[in-house]
C-alpha cells in the first residue's frame, strides 16, 4: 500500500513537472514534446487509478494524434515563440 502511494505521488509530481516544462519552453516543438510526455504520464496515472479505458483513449489520442496535429500545425506556421 505504501509503495502504491509513493508511486502515485511520484507520478503526480512528474505530471506537474512535465506540464511546467510544456509551459516553460520557448520552442514550440519542445513544448509539444513535453506536453506529450505529460499526457503519457497522465495516462500512466489513469492506469493506476484503475481506469484502463481512459488510459487507452489518452494513450491513443494524447501520445499519437494530438502530437501529430500539433506538429503539423507548427510546420504550417512557425516554430519559435516570438519574443
Amino acid at each position: 500500500m505504501i509503495v502504491q502511494s509513493i508511486l502515485h505521488v511520484v507520478v503526480l509530481v512528474l505530471i506537474v513537472i512535465g506540464a511546467a516544462l510544456a509551459v516553460w519552453f520557448k520552442d514550440l516543438l519542445s513544448s509539444v514534446l513535453a506536453l506529450a510526455a505529460a499526457s503519457l504520464l497522465v495516462s500512466l496515472e489513469f492506469y493506476m487509478l484503475q481506469a484502463p479505458d481512459v488510459a487507452i483513449a489518452e494513450a491513443a489520442i494524447g501520445a499519437a494524434l494530438t502530437t501529430a496535429i500539433y506538429v503539423i500545425a507548427i510546420r504550417r506556421t512557425a516554430r519559435k515563440e516570438e519574443e
Binding site: 516543438l29 509539444v32 514534446l33 506529450a36 503519457l40 495516462s43 492506469y47 484502463p52 488510459a55 487507452i56 494513450a59 491513443a60 501520445a63 499519437a64 502530437t67 501529430a68 506538429v71 503539423i72 507548427i74 510546420r75
Partner: peptide, 19 residues
C-alpha cells in the same frame, strides 16, 4: 493498454522526427 502504448508512442516520435 501497454500494447497500445508500445504501438502508438512510435507514431508521435515519428512525427517529431519527421519535422
Amino acid at each position: 493498454v501497454a500494447i497500445i502504448y508500445a504501438l502508438l508512442s512510435f507514431v508521435g516520435t515519428l512525427y517529431i522526427a519527421r519535422y
